[in-house]
Design a protein around this nucleic acid. Structure first.
Lengths: 201, 201
DNA sequence: CAAATCTATTAAACAGTGTTCAATATAAAA
DNA sequence: TTTTATATTGAACACTGTTTAATAGATTTG
């Protein structure tokens, strides 16, 4: 059925067009300031048509939510080439921070927009995987004699909280006002201070 | 002018009534899910009347924003009785975490709701004071020989990021899903791990 | 080929939102 | 008592997410 295949292809393309439009506006204006009517009119469609392809506004958001996590994970995966687990551990934080800097809107979508409520959906499954990956790297560090006497689980949580805290302050622009230097500089130095503290453990 | 005084008093009371209504609904439903009409009807007033007392919805929010910071600061100030600076430093983090646990909605209002955008307004001035206070305590620790070779500014930022990261994950309910234990337990153990790491510095 | 069916699209409608404003009612001052 | 100032209202405006009946277009069927 070549014809039905083409139909299906067109449906996929329409799905993509809506997502492209939504991504642009979501990342520019944020969740609440983006309307279905905006998304539709940007691609010369009627608001109602959107609901033929997506259940509701939230479903479009979750699609992009997933997208962000996939991008995030791909950047984390790139660090697998680093052999030494402690070096990899340190690099993971840097990649995390750089992700927040280069994809601030995705970061907001993924970690700070409350819309989602509970930690559910495919995006969070990817996140779960990333956390387990971090936990594994920390375990490798511990196997090498680092972080002695510290529980792996809490160490993972602490590391995560550390970098997320830095990125969260950055993404909500709560840094620049309180310290003089540029936010980007502050993030790096804050993280380096953390590494300096954790280094002798 | 006793009459005009009474008038003024009534105006203040009306201001307070609106704020009380708004606080209840804001803290229960969050910023976006709270409407002017809700706030007004809860005290049997017309929506338009609200605008006689407040410029807009955002101004009501900022009033509560301030309120949260004042409550926060009062709890921090209670730690002044602790003489030893390092003990005070450690207690500050605990108070921070406990504040996020006991006043999750205020915490969201103060640190996580994006509405405000830039770090401006009276609430942030109070926050600035709290940060400088933390910086001072850390300086006292450093004067005692702790945290040698670390920059006070970045140490302050790191500490702040650490506890805020923990609380941020908690308030957005991004913890319970990823680790088994209860969120409250995780927060404390995560923070204790941080203290254990920083302890020998 | 014509009729019936299925698919995609639309405009209109509904109930909600923040905000403004002319019309008031109430109270104070003249 | 009349004028003035203050406080309150309900209606209106331009939005929002979402639903739905009507419809145009293409595909399949008789």
């Amino acid at each position: 059925m070549s014809i039905s295949k083409r139909k299906e292809q067109e449906k996929i393309e329409m799905h993509k067009r809506i997502l492209d439009s939504a991504r642009r506006i979501f990342l520019e204006k944020g969740y609440e300031q983006t309307s279905i009517r905006n998304i539709a009119s940007a691609i010369s469609y009627s608001p109602g048509s959107i609901y033929f392809y997506f259940k509701d506004k939230s479903e479009i958001f979750h699609e992009l939510h997933k997208e962000g996590f996939r991008l995030f994970l791909s950047q984390m995966k790139a660090l697998d080439v680093i052999g030494d687990p402690y070096e990899r551990y340190k690099a993971m934080g840097l990649v995390f921070i750089r992700f927040a800097q280069n994809h601030t809107d995705y970061y907001n979508l993924m970690f700070l927009v409350s819309e989602t409520g509970k930690a559910e959906g495919e995006g969070f499954q990817i996140a779960q995987g990333a956390i387990e990956h971090l936990s594994g790297v920390i375990q490798q560090c511990q196997d090498q004699g680092r972080f002695q006497g510290l529980d792996n689980k809490y160490l993972t949580l602490m590391t995560l909280s550390m970098v997320h805290g830095i990125c969260s302050l950055y993404c909500k622009d709560r840094m620049s006002g309180f310290f003089e230097k540029s936010s980007e500089e502050l993030m790096l130095h804050g993280y380096e201070t953390f590494l300096a503290v954790i280094d002798q453990k």
